[in-house]
Lab assay of single mutants.
Amino acid sequence: TTIEWNGTKITVDNPQKAKELAKKIAKKLGLTVKVHGNTITIE
């Protein structure tokens, strides 16, 4: 699972952990999480 935001890509083996990490990042930055299959985008 890949997390993408602002040109940065982070690959996380565990999809559940990836989703939790994305939510934490999005919350800190005041952004939203969008899931597209194996890609999680923070916008």
Results as ranks from 00 to 15, higher is better:
D13K: 14
G30H: 07
G7N: 07
T1S: 08
A18M: 03
K28W: 14
W5G: 08
T1G: 08
Q16T: 11
N6F: 15
I42T: 01
I25K: 00
I25Q: 00
T39I: 13
K28M: 12
K19H: 13
N14Q: 03
T32V: 14
N6Y: 14
T8K: 11
I10C: 14
I3F: 02
T8S: 10
N14W: 06
V33K: 00
K27N: 12
V35K: 03
E43K: 09
H36K: 11
E20Y: 08
V35H: 05
N38D: 07
W5C: 15
T41D: 02
K9L: 13
I40D: 00
P15C: 09
T2I: 14
T32A: 10
Q16R: 13
T11Q: 09
N14F: 04
K27M: 09
E4I: 14
E20G: 05
N38P: 04
I25D: 00
I42R: 00
T11V: 15
T1D: 06
V12R: 01
G7L: 03
I25N: 00
K34G: 03
K34D: 03
T2N: 09
L21G: 01
I10K: 01
Q16P: 02
V35A: 04
G30R: 02
W5E: 07
T39R: 10
K28Y: 13
K24W: 13
K9C: 15
T11D: 04
G30M: 02
P15R: 09
T1N: 08
D13G: 11
T32S: 11
K23W: 07
L29G: 08
T32P: 05
N14C: 10
A22E: 01
T2A: 05
H36W: 03
H36L: 10
D13P: 10
N6W: 15
A22N: 00
K34V: 14
T32G: 05
A18K: 01
N14V: 04
I3S: 05
L29T: 14
E43H: 10
K19L: 15
E4C: 11
L31N: 03
L31T: 06
G37V: 03
T8L: 14
V35P: 02
A18F: 03
K27C: 11
G7Y: 07
L31H: 08
T1K: 07
G37I: 03
T32K: 10
E43P: 05
K19D: 05
V12E: 01
A22G: 03
A18N: 01
A22Y: 02
I42C: 04
K24R: 13
L29W: 07
T39Q: 08
T39L: 09
G37C: 07
